[in-house]
């Protein structure tokens, strides 16, 4: 369990004090993938650096498994950091070292392993990220995705209990992003490793995360399970971030209200009902005919979900009775 309690951090900018983080609190369960999303300048980068104290908050506490690391002295903190992996947007590999030597670097820092043991561990890690064949290459000879795999192998070297990802896929093309996200999900499953990541891309949250916090101007404006936040975003920033992925947009709703002006219903499917012909079934039973205005059908971490906006064209029952009918099929219906 990772607990961030009321941390604040200010920067001096042009003689003025600007809050990068304003009283932020988070609770991150062991073994989950926790995403922090926000636009640039929202304070994400500062927040993730407060988790290993690369940035020291002005006030507040950060506890890892019950240990308040803000009270650690420098030496203890350096020791603790050896078991907190970090992956960076621009990889930050040592150009002077080969792939294998880069992965070996944190093992050298930690000490305690013989050279042969280090080599064995390096081979193990390179196999985990699928880079066995590139062992002796220099970072400059690798593609972006390969560099990030080296970064991930390096971050895992000392058996961390926490992995921090600082925009780990932001410098990669979409295809490579998917592969790296799949690798992270795999590592989370295989090693039960807690992962905290920051991103500005809702797709990363949707594909990978269990929980999410939305950061805006240094404050957490919304947090919860990814599915809940996606299906019922409360804050304007969350809604606009979701709109970029095509979720939750009004689409034809405005025109419908102007020209047709019959009621509009919002149907939310999660899990099993997504795979059933619910709309068809209710349509027959209640004589409901609708015109779809917008919709999203997708999955979040292997859970299928859907959200449809529909204008009611005809209905045998009163519109206000529809929520109860849909509820029987496990679908939430709201009359807007």
């Amino acid at each position: 369990m990772i607990e961030v309690q009321n941390i604040s951090k200010h920067y001096q900018h042009g003689g003025k004090s600007v809050a990068a983080l304003d009283n932020v609190s988070l609770q991150i369960a062991s073994g989950e993938i926790y995403g922090i999303i926000g636009r640039s300048g929202a304070g994400k980068s500062t927040l993730i650096r407060c988790l290993n104290l690369l940035e020291r908050p002005d006030s507040g506490h950060v506890s890892l498994h019950g240990e308040d690391i803000t009270r650690f002295d420098e030496r203890a903190l350096q020791q603790r950091r050896q078991r907190i992996g970090m992956v960076f947007q621009h990889f930050n590999l040592l150009r002077s070292r080969t792939v294998a030597a880069n992965v070996r670097f944190p093992l050298e820092l930690a000490g305690g392993l013989s050279p042969a043991q280090m080599d064995a561990r390096v081979d193990e890690l390179l196999a985990l990220v699928g880079l066995q064949d590139h062992k002796h290459k220099r970072p400059s000879q690798l593609s972006g995705g390969q560099k990030q795999r080296v970064g991930i192998a390096r971050a895992l070297a000392n058996h961390p209990d926490l992995l921090l990802c600082d925009e780990a896929t932001s410098a990669l093309d979409p295809e490579t992003t998917d592969a790296i996200l799949a690798l992270l999900a795999d590592i989370n499953r295989q090693l039960g490793l807690t992962i905290v990541l920051i991103t500005h891309d809702m797709r990363v949250i949707r594909q990978l995360c269990d929980s999410v916090a939305v950061l805006d101007h240094g404050r957490v404006v919304e947090q919860g399970k990814v599915l809940d936040v996606f299906l019922a975003p409360q804050h304007a920033v969350t809604q606009s971030l979701l709109a970029e992925t095509g979720m939750g947009q009004g689409a034809l709703q405005g025109i419908w209200r102007q020209r047709v002006a019959t009621p509009v219903i919002k149907l939310t499917f999660v899990g099993e009902p997504t795979l059933q012909p619910v709309l068809d079934k209710v349509g027959r039973e209640a004589g409901l005919r609708v015109n779809l205005l917008s919709g999203t059908l997708s999955e979040i971490k292997d859970t299928p979900f859907g959200q449809l906006l529909a204008g009611v064209v005809a209905s045998d029952v009163d519109v206000s009775a529809l929520p109860a009918i849909f509820a029987r099929e496990g679908v939430r219906c709201e009359v807007l």
Partner: peptide, 15 residues
């Protein structure tokens, strides 16, 4: 020297 590389080594507990 790239500041990011220095930061990365600090994140690994380098003295």
């Amino acid at each position: 020297v790239d500041r990011g590389v220095i930061e990365a080594s600090q994140s690994m507990g380098a003295r």
